[in-house]
Structure formats: C-alpha cells, structure tokens
Design a binder for these strands. Structure first.
Lengths: 305, 305
DNA sequence: GTAATAGTGTCTGTTAGACAGTATTAG
DNA sequence: CTAATACTGTCTAACAGACACTATTAC
C-alpha cells in the first residue's frame, strides 16, 4: 500500500483502508498490568496490655505455570483490547482482593526487551493501597490461586560514592526480602547512578533473585520508594486505615512506611488539617482512650507540590 | 492448545510452544511514545539597555497525513519490537532535535480505547528538557517535517467547588494556548475531581480542541503541571540553561515555569547548595556584571521527597 | 497508688518571605 | 552624576524537632 495513495483519501476512507492494510504491518507487544498491592497488617498480640505492632504487607501470587513456575509474582494480567489500563487494573484488583474501588495510582511503564521470555511484554505498574479492615478474611488455606500477603523489608546493604574528575558515581546495593509464614523470597538489586553535570543516568541491575518472578523485585522496590516519598505531602497513607482511626494508629502507619519513629507533637501538627474529630473515643487498653478521627475530604494539596 | 499440555513441558519446550501457538492469540495494541519537549527561549531584544525576557517553548509537529491532518501533534513514534521505550525516546529525540543525551523522564501512559481512530494505541509520554543553546538553529523555513517551537500558556479560566453532603466536587476549566508566529492552536480542558472520604476520582474532558491532534493537549497540560511541581525540589530546571549561567538567568527560568515572580534572596538561598561559583563574570548591560555559576553535581536530593 | 498510653504547652533552631540597603557598570 | 541591574544584611513569621508536662484508664 502506497503512502501517497492513502493520503489522498478522505479521513473516513483512510481509516478504513488503514485498518485493512496497515494496522498489523509491524509486530506489536502485549500490554499487561502489574499491581503492587499494599495493606497495613495489625498483628494480633496476645498480651492485652501491649499495643499491637503494624507491618506493611504486599500481595504476591504463586505462578502455577511457566515461566518462573513456582516463583512469586505481582498480581496483574493482560489488558483487553477494548479496555484501558485503569479499567483493567480495577477489574483485576476486584478479582484479586474482592474489594471494590481500591486506591490505585499509575507508577511506571516497564519495557525492557527481555523482561518476559515468552514474548515482548510492556507492563504498566500500579501502586494500590487497601485497608485491611475491608479485606475479606484471607484464609491461610485459600489455595485457589495461591495468593498470599508478604511482609516487605528493604535494606540498603551497601552504599558508596566515588568521584572521577567531574563524574560522580553512586552505587547502592539494596536487599529486598518478603516473608509469608514459612515462605521467604528475596532479591538483591544494585543501582548505579552516574552524574556528569546535570546529566544523571541510573542503571539497575538484578544481582540475585530468589523466588521472585520476572523484574517484579525492581517494581516492588520502586513502589516502596514512591510510597515513602508521597506519604509526607499527600493523603496516601489514609488509604491504609479505616474510615475512623486514632492518631496513634495513623502515626504508626506513617512510621512503618517511613521506617523510623516520628515525633508525636510534630506528627499531630502535620496531619492537623487533614483530619476531623468525630467526637468519639475508643478504649484499646489499660490507659487513656484515644479520640477517633476521620479524613477531612476538604483537605487539598497540590497534585505535585 | 491445551493449558495442561503446555504446563507439562520443560520451560524451554514451553516457551518454544508458546511462541508458536499462544503468542498472538489475542489482539494487541501498538505502543508509541509522545514527547513533550520544552526549551527556554530567550527573546532577542533590540533595546540593549533592557533585559531579554524568557518564555517556555514546546516542539510540535504538523501532521502531514490522516488522521488530524494539518493539526499539530507532539513528537513521537512507534516503539520498535526490539527496543525499549527509553531507547525509542532517545532515538526520536535525536531525530527531532539533532541533540544527543537530552534529559527525558517518563510521565504517564495513556491508554484510552478511542484515543487514536486508526487502531488501539497505548502511548508512553515523556517530559524532555533541552537547553536552547545546544539546539541547532531551527530555521523558520525547515519545512522538511514541519516542526516548530510554540510558546505555551495555560490559564485557569474557571474553578469552583461544591459540597453535596460528604461529597466534594471540584471543577476546573483550563485553557491551553500555544503560539508560533502566526499560528495559534488551543484547547479547553475541563477537569472534575470528586472526593468522597479518601476516595478521589478525577475525570478529564476535552471541551474544545482547535489545531491540536489526538489527546495531546491533555498530555501537554499534564507535563506542564509535573514540570512546575518538580522545579522546587529537584534540579530539573538546570536542564533548561547552559553549562554556565548567571543566577538572575536561572531565577528567570524558575519564574517562567512557575508563572510568578520569586523573591531574590530566598531564591538564592534555595539554590545555594546546587550551584558552584566559576569565578567568572559576564557583562550583559549597562550595570554590574553577573557572576557565572555552574551546576553542582554533588548536590543530592531524595528521588521523591 | 502504678503502669501504660493519649494528648498538650512550650522552647529552640531552621527555613521562607519581605525589605532595605550596598556594589558595579555604561553613559 | 543617573539609571539599571547584581548582590548582601537583616528583620519577621512560619515550621520542624525535641522535651517535659498533664490526662485518663485498668488493675
């Protein structure tokens, strides 16, 4: 089909012709979604006088077939030809968790040529957060699709910086470890950032990968860093607590995400405009009851700030 | 092909079989890139005693064929089956601007089903910034591919907020206008944000579109907002100035991006750690010369912060 | 009362914003 | 000298971080 011929047609005729002769001229990749679904688990503590600790958990699914058979992967799936990525994500989130209207935000699109051994797959990753209280009781024995919640921990095991004339090279080695009961999967990721003037180039390298499928360790690490970055200036953390919550609980959510203790006064000042006092209280132990708050929908922030 | 049969094979056999029989079972979309390439234009001012004003410009390309024939579109193109999106973007940036190693950051992946009338196209958009000094003189008469630099201006023409019980609905009408010489293209975008508790849903609506192809007005608006958001806590603005620059010049870059005047003292304090004094000076008019600075590569910031 | 956690008052040091001043140049 | 812009010193208000204090409950 000659380009010239196509361009002399009317737009309607052009599109008709295009779909007949041009549409599938080149090989196309498949599009999938990969969802990093986090929840904040509250451990059941037997000692009533002690406060329950929280931990960040993430949903992984054991692969039943090749490739990476037996390894654990992020939830996700192929985008249908008549749905957009956001719709696909909401559909899959519902399928995986049984919850409707989960918070999900597009993270990054991964397109390395060899990221899937079967064929060319471009994947749009999403960060999703769900309140544990809304989840149907995920049974330990729900082996229908071998989905499990894993606690996540990322540790910087090494980090150094060297300067060769005007070039600065920063190297970081990060270990990602996820555990669910007796199962532990892990990966070691090396990230090298070379800065020359304004120009910065980051290369990521999977040094070790044990029980995690595809490039999902990299995606998980990326989502963890995004989550941490957004906690302080958005309302993202509120997606991990219920409608009503106490400030000590909310603070713990922040602390678990950031991986460090926060100052109580400063924390309360920080969230002051974001919460509304419900007037209610809740007794959780042998001490002063906490006030119950809810999210203040009128709170605004710049989309980027 | 039976799933069961496939899964009983070894991984190598499985992949071989998969590529023969499964790979193209479902219809796939095409993947393209769309690049929002900005530069900071310094207007030539005839009056030597007056300082040159800067303005933000963006590269658009006139469509020679259907669809949107004659309209202006972002630079971009199809991703090859054996390259990743980043590589495709760098290749196209070089083709379009003649400059190597341009700063480019992935923005968002657009996947609305009807965003291209020819077929299903998913597009990964990039924000790219290039120093005008590095650009080969873009001739007014370079009609080879009808590429032109347009000045950009976005204006909020209307904005209101209503609360119906616990639901807050924010409506914004934004006008995007781009001009290059006698050519002006524009679009009016309506953005409605409905907040209910923590749950926020944003719907974007193209109310008017004049001379801009596809959903590119929406992509441009998105990139403008990202650029503004990142200016204050990253080094992104330094990609719009040369190796050596004066602080008044740099401040003007910030001011043009943010669309407001900045306080001189505070600005200098803000960029203090990011710049290095070269010891050189430059005379630009009938007044005290400016010191020349360059970017301090050792400056670090949290990836997200 | 004690132990434990919830919540508040206040000090201090850092940062953002505004203003007024001095410095340097061409003409 | 003046006009124009570069650069600096300093005041003030806002915010982050730390500490010490009071409040409420079960036992």
């Amino acid at each position: 089909m000659e380009e010239q011929f196509l361009q002399n047609l009317s737009e309607t005729e052009f599109i008709e012709q295009y779909q007949k002769t041009e549409k599938d001229k080149y090989e196309k990749p498949s599009i999938t979604t990969d969802m990093v679904i986090f929840t904040m688990d509250t451990e059941k503590v037997s000692d009533k006088r002690k406060k329950a600790e929280k931990e960040l958990q993430l949903l992984l699914i054991q692969r039943g077939g090749h490739p990476y058979k037996g390894d654990w992967a992020l939830a996700g799936g192929f985008m249908g030809i008549d749905e957009d990525v956001d719709t696909a994500v909401q559909r899959e989130l519902k399928e995986e968790t049984g919850v409707d209207g989960i918070y999900a935000e597009q993270l990054y699109t991964w397109s390395a040529v060899d990221r899937d051994p079967r064929m060319r797959i471009v994947s749009v990753s999403y960060l999703a957060l769900v309140d544990q209280g809304k989840l149907p009781p995920l049974q330990a024995g729900d082996d229908a699709d071998d989905a499990r919640w894993f606690t996540v921990k990322d540790t910087v095991v090494e980090s150094h910086e060297e300067q060769i004339s005007s070039t600065i090279r920063r190297t970081e080695e990060i270990e990602l470890e996820m555990t669910s009961g007796e199962i532990t999967v892990s990966a070691t990721i090396e990230r090298v950032t070379v800065t020359e003037g304004t120009n910065t180039k980051t290369t990521v390298w999977m040094k070790k990968q044990d029980g995690i499928a595809f490039d999902h360790a990299e995606i998980i690490l990326y989502s963890l860093e995004r989550l941490r970055g957004k906690v302080n200036y958005t309302n993202i953390a509120f997606n991990l607590v219920g409608e009503e919550f106490t400030l000590p609980d909310l603070q713990q959510v922040y602390e678990v995400i950031l991986g460090r203790a926060l100052n109580k006064v400063q924390f309360r000042r920080h969230v002051e405009g974001m919460v509304l006092d419900t007037g209610k209280e809740i007794k959780t132990g042998a001490y002063r009851p906490s006030k119950l708050y809810r999210y203040n929908s009128a709170w605004v922030h710049d989309q980027w700030k």
